[in-house]
């Protein structure tokens, strides 16, 4: 077996996520450590892209917070990610939704995929 994959396997094994793609709305439960205490912060938004593969895969999640667009990049196999929930599926025609950054009004919405 490929040695690099073998090294990565230790971190990817046993971690499962719902199948989601760009355009889907997801909720990321992110662990935050404050001294000895640990709490979970939720971050809900639209997936703009999935990048890289294997252990190094990251997702870019965009949301509008108090009228300001916020984007966070999560390595999905990060030890700090508790879980990822799929909220709704989006109907989109491309894999990278950077047009959402400049889009306004109705254009800035992603239609929900039904069925």
């Amino acid at each position: 077996m490929d040695a690099i994959k073998f090294v990565e396997q230790e971190f990817t094994e046993g971690k499962t996520f719902p199948a989601f793609n760009a355009g889907d709305t997801i909720n990321v439960h992110y662990k935050i450590r404050e001294g000895a205490k640990e709490r979970i912060q939720q971050y809900q938004g639209i997936v703009l892209q999935r990048r890289n593969s294997g252990l190094n895969e990251t997702i870019t999640v965009r949301k509008i917070s108090n009228g300001v667009g916020v984007e966070r990049i999560f390595p999905i196999y990060s030890l700090n990610i508790d879980k990822i929930e799929l909220i709704s599926r989006g109907k989109v025609r491309r894999a990278r939704l950077f047009y959402l950054r400049a889009a306004k009004g109705k254009n800035a919405k992603v239609k929900e995929k039904r069925g």
Binding site: A3, I4, S78, N80
Partner: peptide, 21 residues
Amino acid sequence: KLGMTSIFDVNGKQVACTVLE
């Protein structure tokens, strides 16, 4: 030298590393 990747350390920090046989 077999190649590079990145793994997570004890604190959850992502570190670049090289895999050697």
